[in-house]
Every structure is written in C-alpha cells, then in structure tokens.
Write a protein that binds this DNA or RNA. Structure first.
Length: 802
RNA sequence: GCCUGGGUGGCGGAAUGGUUUACGCGAAGGUCUCAAAAACCUUUGAGCGCAAGCUCGUGUGGGUUCGACUCCCACCCCAGGCACCA
C-alpha cells in the first residue's frame, strides 16, 4: 500500500484485531487488572454525538496508555437504555421504545466499533434487558429490606409535560431537567431512598478520593452541611414549644419575631389561639397554589401574615415576640420554622422593614466602641455581642456555644441533601418489585420471582393521571400476594434511570453471572474502578447516587469497599461556534461524515488537539485538516524510510525529550500538548532526515498508537513487525539523554531581553557573567557602568541590574 | 447574591516567577504544473525605521519583585453550577 487511505486501513485492522482478540482481557486470570471506565451513553438518538466520541476517546487513550504500561486493561461499554431520554425520543418518533431503542443501539454499536477503542464487547450490557434489570430490582429489594427504601406521602416536584415526579436533583431552577417545563408541587405517595442517612459519610469520604476538585466541591455544596443549634421557643398560654434550627444561636437576643412555613402543621395545632384564621387561611391557600419558581420570584417582595393571638417567648431575653407565616420559609428545611433576627439576616431584615418589626442589634463589628451604627442593611458578619445581657462583649463565635447551652438548646447539623425520590409514573423503566395486598400490606416480590418483567404494551405514553401507563394493564397489575396467596396488586411505578446507572460498573466484569448481580471473586479482583472519566454535568446526580449505592452494598456485605471510583476526572464540554451543541440550535456535529472523509484516527486526534481534556473547546471543521496532514506526513516518512533504509545515528536527545513530554502529558490528561510534541518531533525528523534512524520513526509510531490506533499499526506492520504496535511496551526515556549539550542563554538588562547566546549546558554563574559582560550588545547598553547586581538562573538566563 | 472555571495574535490554544504567542488553522508570497488541486519552501502580534534596531503588547487599575500571563489587592466581562437552606 503506497497511499494513505484511512477507510481502507482502518477497516482492515479492526478486522485483524477482532480475529486475534487483541483487546481481550481474561477477567479471571488477568495479573495486573486495571478497570478503565467511561460513562455509558443514553441511546436516545439515532446515532452517536461528537461529544460522545470526544469523551470516549479521552478515556480510551488513557486505557491504551495503561495497557502499554503493562496493565490488563478492562474497558467496557454499554447502554443506559431505560428511562425518560430514550422513551421521549421513541414517543417523538412514534415508535415503541423497545423497538426504537434496539435500533439506536445497533447504530451506536456500529459507530463505536469504528473508533478503534479497547471496548470489551463481550461484556457489553444494556440496562433495559431483563438480565440486567432483574438485578436493578434485586438492588431495590436489598434497600427495602435494610429499611433504606420507603414509601411516603410528601409534597414532591411534578413535571406536567413528562407527567411524572422528579428527584430534587432533576429540578433545575424550578424547571424539569429533561424538558424545561415549570415544575409543580404535588402531594402524592412516592418511593424514596434514604440517601440522607449517608449525608455525612458522602461528605467525609470526599477527602479520601482522588477526584477532580471541582466535582468534589459541587458534591460538597449539594450535600450542603450547616452546623448550628436546635432551640425551643415556648408559646404563651400554651404548653406547646416551637423548635427552630439556626446557624447563629449567638444572635438569639436579637430574635424579635418567628416565622413558620405556611404549610407547617403547627399552624393547625395553634388554630384555637389564632384570631385572624380567615386571613391566615387565604394566605396558605395562595402559597399552596404557587410553583417553586413562582415562590422564588415572589420572594423579591417578601410577604406574610401574622398569627394574631399567638405570642412566642424568646428563651434568652424572655421577651414576648409575634409569630408569622411567610413563604420565604421553606417547610422542607430545618424544622420549617425560623427565629427571625432582622439585624443580622438579610431576608429577615427585608421582612421586618416591610412589616415594621423591631430590629435589635446584638452583634457589633466595632466593639469595644459602644456606638453601633444604625443599619441600612443586615450585618451578617462576626463581631462581639451587645444587648445580650451577661454575654455582652463575648465574641460571636464563642457565644454560639454559650448561648445554646444557656437556653438548653442542642448542637446539631442540617443538610441540603434530600432523600432520593426514585419512583416514576412512566413506562420505560424497571417495575418496582412491590405487591400491595389488602391483608398483608406492602409485600416485596420474592427474589426468586425476579425479574418483574416490563410488559410489552401498546399504550406506553404517559397518561397524566398521576399513574404509570402500567396501571391500565390489568394482566400486570393483578397478581397474587406472595405471602397469603390472596388477590393483590402490583406497584405500577417504575424506578428512576439513575438507579440503573448507579450500579452498572459492578455488573460489567460479571456480565454473564447468573447467580447474583455480580460475582464476589471477580468484584474483589476488579473493583473499585481505577479510573472513571466522564462529564461534569453528572457531578451531583449520577456520581452521588453511585457513591450512595456503593456504600449501601458495602454495609450490606456485598462489597469490601465503600467508594466506587478511585480516580475520577471530568472532561469539558465540546461546543460548536462557542455554544453548547443541541438539536434545537441545529449545531450538533455528526461524526459519521468525518469518519468517512478523514478516518477515525484523524477525528480522534483532532478532538484531543482542540484543548485540554478537562476544558474541551470548540469544534471547527477547519482545524481538522491539520491533523490529517500530520498523519499523511507520518505515512510518507515511513514509506521513504522503508525504501531507503535510514543510515543516520538517530536523533537521540530529541527522541528522549519527546518520550518524556508525551508520557507526562498523557498522565496529566494533557493530550493536546502531547500531540503538539509529536508534531514537533516529526518536524524535527523531517528536517534532519540524514541523521534520523529507524528507531526514531518506530518510537514515533509507538507514541502515536494510543491517540490514532490504526495508522501506526499499519506502518508498524509495513516495517516488517509481526506483533501489534499496541503490544509494544511504552518507551522509557533516559534522563541523561534528555539534556541538550548546548543551551540558549537569555541575557537581560534590568529584566529586558537584550541578547540570546548559545553556550554549553551546565555553564557556571561565573562563566555566564563573563560572557555576558563581554557581549557587545550588553556593553553598548551598560555604557561603561558597573552592574549593581547579577541574577543567574542556571540553564535559563542571566540578568544584569544596572 | 454565593460557588467553580476562564479572559493571551485574525482563530483553536502553548507557557503557572525567567525568550509571550510552542503546535495547529487561516492569510500572503514562492517552487512544481499547460493549468488547477495536492505536496513542499518562506513570511505572518502591533507601531516606528532604509537598516542594525527601538518602543508597546497577556480584560482594567494598583502593588510585590532584578524580572509578573504567572503572586497579592480592587474592579470589569464571559461560561457553568447553586440559590429565600435560616
């Protein structure tokens, strides 16, 4: 073959690799297991998105590099096929989800195979297959048995367009994550997982794992731990006490009123005392009707109603204070009640101003000066206490403890994290394996009866009745109670897609295992995952759920580790013309045409060349030819060297420098600069052809192999090698040879470059100084003056301060 | 409002205290060709100058330093995330 025709050689080598099972890893016998995971795609489109290719290539380069380091790299691929994404796409096409998803997966697979990646296809899995979701249901049952899955009536977020409830994490700015419809509040019975029980562990373990810092911060913020105190406020003429959570017990003397969330049940308990019940009722109804978004917008102007007739007693100052309901207080956080300290909280300040309530300053930033300025806004910082009886003069930090103790409060923590709502009123998901029996109550499906198969039904569209379409399938709903064998009904909700993907990495190595979700020995050998590369957009959804599920499996004795991924690196978002690719904008790049025009090698390398993996960058049709030209030049060079055996002694220094830099860059996921160095190396060889050796070329091919798997393989073969280039050990560099003999020494005067001179490497300060002072240009600048000071940076520069 | 990133040629980006703009794209000129494409070679931050060369230049304004894209302070802009969480 004299000419580089990507399509031809890529097809040829994929065939050879498949026949020879080049990428095959023996799961049982592997000596140095390395689990290289990437986020499996949603097959919710006809074909692969260039963003998928970007992510998978970034991960595959890491896998191929580790393989050449001598590891047995397991790099599985699969499909997150259940769920709203795939179902919505099928509905849009008017094709049954089962049929449409199968079609999508077929095309995805064809495209994925073109990438020349390490994918372990014999371990591929699809979450919508009964062999897989059987174990998703099994997982649900384990959580149920452990008391970590419960059904409860609660106000939840409902998407009127997707016609299902959503998890807290799936509501973005009061809108549905999938379709951007405004989310409504609905009070219904739903299934939850007790992720809040793990809040503290999810937070603490972050310190022990090697993850991208920004991902850890996002999780930390989402878990949202606040330390504070729980305090009790007695109600006048009643035995009742109102409990509040506050992070600032030091400001207790400044609490001049209290606010309950409008829907708080305590309001009903106080009904007898409330003299303006009608007014209260009107406000509560109005608040109930609002969506979260409206309530937040409304918040620009705070509103509320006083519960007239009810007075609370500030436990510190013993003063009587009024009690309000207002929708700026959320029922779902803390106790649903706050002590309002208008002088030291912006929201309370705004409310107090509007309703003319007392604003008492109790933390002074100017202490010991007695005069504290009259506030035009709340002072939320630290300081020393004033107007707080015996605590006056104490630092606010210390007073947090002391005042809590003084009023008999309890030190406590609160989290932003809510329990994970996992039931969905949709069709395309694993049915929740629960049976309701009039006699026995809620009965879990026995494990031997799994899977509870999702029936193939004609009417799969969501109905909007608040129930899954499965509720209309009587052959599914009607069943026998596993306990009393009497008539019973099945749960008709399915579980959240994020449950499918919360444990898939456990299944991959054991994909054929029949006796359980995963084989114990295999799991011990391969897990936890060594490297996980994926999108930052999953920082608080998928990644938090996987950690939670892994902790649960650990606690139940199914795993001997509690963190699923030793290393996680987030890749950036690939854009087109500076904007996120989306179907609505019509700027989605389909990789197929580029595979045909330039080949997968060029597409892979170009994607990695755009920018650092963690930051991604902008796809441009123009830049891709640069990579294509580069591969062509490598090809031409190889043809020449094949014909006229090179007789040069080799470019030793530059070769070793290249090995060093490429190795370090790959380790740091700086693929863009690694490629740049390979280009420089090639330019160097082309410029000094008579000195170059065959080893120079062969090293280039090996270093290139992880990025562009096909071309180097073909050329390696043309050079007469029988074994694959991918089986070559990664080259090592000699630190002694990396050092150049001559270096360019920068000569500065007062920090400005005046000359650059070539000198022997390792030149001493004395020699450099002499050379510099003798230098004509420098003498011209010095004009006979003596230097005040000379700064010498070995191997770099000499700076003369005059 | 808070939390993350980021702001460098015509463009993607490189350099994390020491030659600003590596590598690539684009552009201009040339070689080859009847011609074109491809390939190859040269030039390519701005301004001044015949030239040697000089001055300016990494969002803005200050500071530290022999020396700042890099460190510190204040601010502006862009992208992403969170948001009445008490």
């Amino acid at each position: 073959m004299e000419q580089y025709i990507p399509e031809k050689i890529e097809k040829k080598w994929r065939g050879v690799w498949e026949r020879k099972k080049l990428w095959k890893v023996d799961i049982k016998k592997a000596k140095r297991p390395y689990y290289n995971l990437m986020m499996f795609p949603y097959p919710s489109a006809e074909g692969l998105h260039v963003g998928n290719v970007y992510a998978f290539t970034g991960s595959d380069i890491h896998g191929k590099f580790q393989r050449m380091q001598g590891f047995d790299v397991f790099e599985p691929m699969g499909f997150d096929a259940f769920g709203i994404h795939s179902e919505n796409f099928a509905i849009k096409k008017g094709v049954h989800p089962k049929v449409q998803t199968a079609k999508n997966i077929k095309h995805f697979t064809e495209q994925l195979k073109q990438l020349g990646s390490l994918f372990a296809w014999d371990h591929a899995l699809t979450t919508s297959e009964p062999e897989y979701y059987k174990w998703t249901q099994w997982l649900f049952l384990q959580l149920y048995k452990a008391g970590l899955a419960y059904r409860a009536k609660a106000p939840v977020d409902w998407c009127p367009s997707c016609k299902t409830v959503l998890a807290d994490e799936q509501v973005i700015n009061g809108k549905c994550e999938r379709c951007s419809s405004e989310v409504l509040q609905k009070e219904t019975e739903q299934w939850f997982f007790k992720i809040t029980k793990y809040a503290d562990r999810l937070l603490k373990n972050l310190e022990t794992i090697d993850w991208s810092e920004r991902t850890k911060i996002a999780q930390k913020n989402w878990i949202g731990k606040s330390e504070g105190a729980q305090l009790k406020f007695p109600v006048k003429n009643s035995n009742a006490k109102i409990e509040v959570f506050t992070t600032r017990p030091d400001t207790l003397f400044g609490a001049t009123y209290m606010v309950l969330a409008p829907e708080h049940k305590f309001v009903d308990e106080l009904k007898a005392q409330i003299v303006n019940w009608g007014e209260v009722q009107v406000y509560r109804d109005a608040a109930k009707k609002k969506s979260e978004l409206e309530r937040a917008e409304f918040a620009k102007e705070k509103s509320g109603v006083e519960l007239k007739g009810v007075r609370a007693i500030n436990p510190a100052s013993k003063e009587e204070i009024p009690v309000f309901i207002a929708d700026y207080v959320l029922a779902s956080y803390g106790t649903g009640v706050i002590m309002a300290v208008p002088a030291h909280d912006e929201r309370d300040f705004e409310f107090a101003k509007k309703y003319g309530l007392a604003i008492t300053i109790v933390v002074c930033p100017h202490y010991p000066e007695k005069t504290c300025p009259i506030l035009d806004k709340a002072y939320v910082g630290e300081g020393h206490l004033v107007g707080s009886g015996q605590f006056d003069g104490m630092s606010s930090e210390k007073a947090r403890q002391e005042i809590t103790k003084f009023v008999g409060g309890e030190k406590t923590e609160r989290y932003h994290l809510r329990d994970w709502l996992i039931s969905r009123q949709r069709y395309w998901g694993p049915p929740i394996p629960i049976i309701y029996c009039a006699k026995c109550g809620t009965v879990p499906v026995p494990e031997k009866d799994l899977p509870v198969k999702l029936p193939f039904v004609k009417e799969y569209r969501p109905e909007g009745t608040g129930k899954s379409p499965l509720a209309s399938v009587s052959s599914f709903v009607n069943t026998k109670c596993p306990q009393c064998k009497g008539k019973a009904e099945r749960e008709t909700d399915v579980s959240d897609t994020f449950l499918d993907s919360a444990w898939y990495f456990f299944r991959y190595p054991s994909s054929d295992y029949k006796k359980g979700p995963f084989d114990e020995g295999i799991t011990k050998k391969w897990l936890p995952v060594d490297m996980y590369i994926g999108g930052q957009e999953h920082a608080v959804l998928h990644l938090l759920y996987t950690r939670f599920i892994t902790m649960v499996l650990h606690d139940l004795g199914f795993a001997d580790f509690e963190e699923p991924f030793k290393k996680f690196r987030a890749h950036g978002l690939l854009t087109k013309d500076g904007a996120k690719m989306s179907k609505s904008k019509g700027n989605v790049v389909n990789p197929d045409e580029y595979f045909v025009k330039y080949g997968a090698d060029t597409v892979r390398m170009y994607l990695m060349f755009i920018g650092p993996l963690a930051e991604a960058g902008d796809w441009s049709d123009k830049g891709i030819v640069g990579i294509f030209r580069f591969l062509n030049r490598v090809w031409t060079l190889a043809q020449e060297m094949k014909r006229e055996k090179p007789k040069g002694k080799g470019l030793e220094t530059v070769r070793h420098k290249t090995i060093k830099k490429v190795t370090e860059d790959i380790q740091n996921l700086r693929y863009n600069t690694a490629i740049a160095v390979l280009m420089e190396y090639l330019n160097e060889i082309l410029g000094k052809k008579t000195e170059a050796s065959l080893e120079d070329l062969e090293t280039l091919l090996i270093l290139l192999a992880p990025f562009a798997p096909h071309v180097p393989e073909e050329l390696w073969n043309q050079l007469g090698h029988k074994d694959s280039v991918h089986n070559q050990p990664w080259p090592k560099y000699d630190p002694k040879l990396v050092q150049e003999e001559k270096i360019r020494l920068v000569v500065q005067i007062n920090g400005k470059v005046r000359d650059i001179i070539e000198v022997q490497a390792g030149i001493s300060e004395q020699e450099a100084k002499e050379l510099a002072l003798k230098n004509e240009k420098i003498q011209k600048w010095l004009q006979g003056k003596l230097p005040k000071r000379v700064i010498f940076v070995p191997e770099r520069l000499i700076n003369i301060v005059a």
